[in-house]
Design a binder for these strands. Structure first.
Lengths: 252, 252
DNA sequence: ACCGTCGCTTGATCTGGATCAAGCGAAGAT
DNA sequence: ATCTTCGCTTGATCCAGATCAAGCGACGGT
């Protein structure tokens, strides 16, 4: 599109080839030529700001979205008028996969902080996957990974107590940030306590109390949105559920 | 494989083309020629019996499995030694999608009653999807549908109370059985109360009490595994959560 | 600089559903 | 035919976390 020499204002539009996320994102493991072809269908919009929507539930499904910088939350309306936060999405993560089937978005995606987003028109993407087997495989893996993640969340919501849930949440965030070259132990939360609680199936008050408790126990420092994990090992053992000896789980 | 005229013992091995599930299963919407090609890679094993495993968590991922008749449950181990039931699978439903990414099964699949299962070696399936765009699309939809279903479960586990969960479970079962040509209001449960409770994040006792209550309220008849839904409309309104006026949900 | 709102914390109380406990009937084992 | 086990039900009690209530400090707007 831009055949000008002007690249200053185009700096936002980093090609996949030069994007630091290429190892986490769709291009992962693709041949350079194929990355190039993928790159051609990616739309890169101007940065979005806190509160902007990528799409709303009920919208026609047209594109997948990939977070380039910033963060996004997805949430589904519940029949009673409330909502369930389904996920917080970091750079390299793909959003909208659940809409391929019904062709209608069943959830909304809202930007949590100023973020750059790549848009992949799905019809064009499907044309590519049909001719690039490794990209097809990548898409299958991506979809499968999402299922695996949901499965983890089902286990979390179905079997874990408040303490285990929050510890798991913090560690998941920590790991994902670390993969993106950020500190695993010192980071800022882009979402509110309310959103964390909603995501984890807990009341805000419970989340707040647990932050306080974890801090008192020397597991972490909390200052507003600023988090420092002090004892990752202990947090991990909390998730394991060995915290207190809970009754042997039902074997159905 | 069988070029004999003997078809009696081969009757189990119904080709996709003749299978009554073709409209629900992978072949859905495929051209007859393509169904034929798909059919060639399907392995049809002898019937499995209650308690048999399709695969166990930790197993290498090789194939997807489709229920032809009977039912299957999938469940994941939790670190404490318990397990979380992830789903109950009816004819036409595909199992194992979560393992494509990691190449290792993270959950186990166990047959709940005598069942016929089709096995689809994934490598061969991927070769097909690469040459049959409509099959590729079908696979994307299938994976996406699974994500959508998981999303529904997250909402259920995160926001709904015991009553709403059980009502939702019964209605989901009812709808799915109906799609398969069975009665929507009169059916047998192939899973135990324990398994239902585990799936819904509830104790067995709670499930049992709710069955009793629903029966007392004239919503259904329960006799052991035999279920008759008497007031589907009321069950639906229970799921909506309008049962009692619960506090307006958090908007995060 | 001031104000109003909002997000967060902390304390007190309440409750849905878990846990504990006991018994019963059906299905499979010997 | 009898025993044993297992799945289910029902009652009593308990508790993690929700809900209710109150205050506080940060931040955006004017």
């Amino acid at each position: 599109m831009s055949h000008h020499k002007v690249i200053s204002l185009e700096s936002i539009r980093i090609a996949c080839r030069n994007c630091s996320l290429s190892s986490l994102c769709l291009p992962m493991g693709l041949a350079p030529d194929d990355v190039e072809r993928l790159d051609e269908i990616v739309k890169r919009t101007r940065p979005l700001h806190r509160g902007d929507f990528l799409f709303r539930d009920g919208d026609r499904f047209r594109s997948l979205y990939v977070v380039k910088t910033g963060s996004v939350k997805t949430f589904a309306p519940s029949p009673e008028g409330g909502e369930q936060v389904l996920g917080f999405h970091l750079p390299g993560e793909v959003i909208g996969l659940d809409a391929i089937d019904k062709d209608i978005h069943a959830c909304s995606a809202k930007v949590l902080e100023t973020s750059a987003i790549c848009e992949l028109p799905f019809t064009r993407l499907e044309e590519l996957t049909a001719t690039i087997p490794s990209l097809q495989h990548q898409m299958f893996r991506l979809l499968s990974k999402e299922i695996g993640h949901d499965t983890d969340m089902l286990l979390l919501l179905g079997k874990k107590n408040a303490e285990e849930r929050l510890a798991a949440f913090l560690l998941s965030l920590s790991k994902r940030l670390h993969k993106r070259g950020l500190s695993a132990t010192d980071f800022y939360l882009s979402m509110s306590r309310h959103e964390i609680g909603n995501y984890l199936g807990l009341a805000v008050e419970t989340v707040s109390r647990l932050f306080t408790r974890f801090q008192d126990d020397g597991l972490m420092n909390v200052d507003r949105k600023h988090i420092q994990l002090l004892d990752v090992g202990m947090l991990e053992s909390l998730v394991g559920g060995a915290g207190q000896n809970r009754r042997q789980q039902q074997q159905s």
